[in-house]
């Protein structure tokens, strides 16, 4: 197992390198010049030039990139062009916020997908199955922000049960933290729920058709044992795979959701950085997001052997 983890982490390095290169390239295409913005409204061309020189923006691209890479390898992602704070510090401050939101969203998605997927699979063609299929298709189709608006209108403005926007750190008040993240997490998790439900449904249908499920029934096991013990264990592998994939999508979704619900997480940080072309911040956030996705995949991979004895090392 440690061997596997080590090998996978090693394999991740080229991915990180390519992602950082791509991000660097893309930021160059973004219109606007950070030096102009930074130097202020009434700056003379000379002042703008000085600023550019100070930021190292006059150096050739590969020098700029090399400088960034050198720092990154030592855990230094540079400083924001605007407030000169170390990017690492700003990111670390916001990671727990986004992490909490994402974890809640995944938990909602998975916790709701298990019953809905199993009911769909075991009552195939029933009114329940059709209702779940309909709602989950809608869940995939509805854009995040539209659903967010509906939820805010209904639960915050209409019923007044939940706060519309804002954030309270977990360390301050876990209850308020939860209440503030409830709507955004639901909104963020809907697409994942729909996707995981679909996966569980088809995996369970497939597993319940297998010969071993017939054997389990022929042994006189209770139906719930056939479903939740025998079929579920085999269906859990694709279900967990798709859940892992959802984490990646979900991370992308936080950008819009955080903005909409006024949550000071990584996504919001990234957006404001893009507006002002704060290259080190953009780079940093993208790299951190990539690491999160890689680590998630790694976690999923290490779960497989626990569930499937065939891939368990002897």
């Amino acid at each position: 197992m440690p061997r596997l983890v080590g090998r996978r982490l090693l394999a991740a390095l080229p991915v990180l390198f390519i992602v950082s290169l791509l991000t660097f390239g893309v930021t160059l295409l973004v219109p606007g010049d950070p030096a102009v913005t930074l130097a202020g409204e009434n700056a003379t061309p000379e002042q703008v030039d000085q600023t550019r020189e100070r930021l190292g923006l006059n150096d050739p691209i590969y020098v700029q990139y090399g400088r960034w890479l050198g720092g990154a390898l030592q855990g230094d992602l540079g400083e924001s062009l605007y407030d000169q704070r170390p990017v690492v510090d700003s990111i670390l401050e916001r990671v727990p916020v986004t992490f909490g939101l994402a974890v809640l969203a995944v938990l909602f998605a998975a916790a709701l997908a298990i019953p809905s997927g199993v009911i769909s699979a075991t009552r195939r063609g029933s009114i329940w199955d059709r209702a779940i299929t309909l709602v989950s298709s809608a869940g995939v189709a509805i854009p995040n922000y539209f659903l967010g608006m509906l939820l805010i209108l209904l639960f915050a403005f209409g019923l007044g049960w939940l706060p519309a926007v804002g954030y309270v750190p977990f360390t301050e008040s876990p209850g308020d933290w939860f209440l503030h993240l409830l709507l955004p997490a639901l909104c963020l998790g809907v697409a994942g729920w729909a996707e995981i439900t679909r996966q569980i449904r088809s995996a369970m249908i497939q597993e319940l058709e297998q010969d071993y499920a017939r054997t389990a029934t022929a042994k006189g096991l209770r139906r719930r044992a056939v479903i939740f013990k025998h079929a579920a264990k085999n269906a859990s592998v694709p279900a967990i795979t798709v859940t892992g994939l959802q984490v990646a999508y979900l991370f992308g979704g936080t950008v819009i959701i955080e903005r909409m619900f006024g949550i000071p997480g990584l996504g919001q940080f990234a957006i404001s950085a893009v507006y002002v072309r704060d290259i080190p911040v953009i780079q940093g956030v993208v790299i951190v997001a990539t690491v999160v996705v890689i680590v998630t995949n790694l976690i999923v991979d290490t779960l497989y052997p626990l569930l499937n004895p065939k891939v368990r090392p002897a």
Partner: peptide, 15 residues
Amino acid sequence: AMIFQEPMTSLNPSF
């Protein structure tokens, strides 16, 4: 009780 035709697939691979 019953024994099936397909020994390769009649047992659950995960237990």
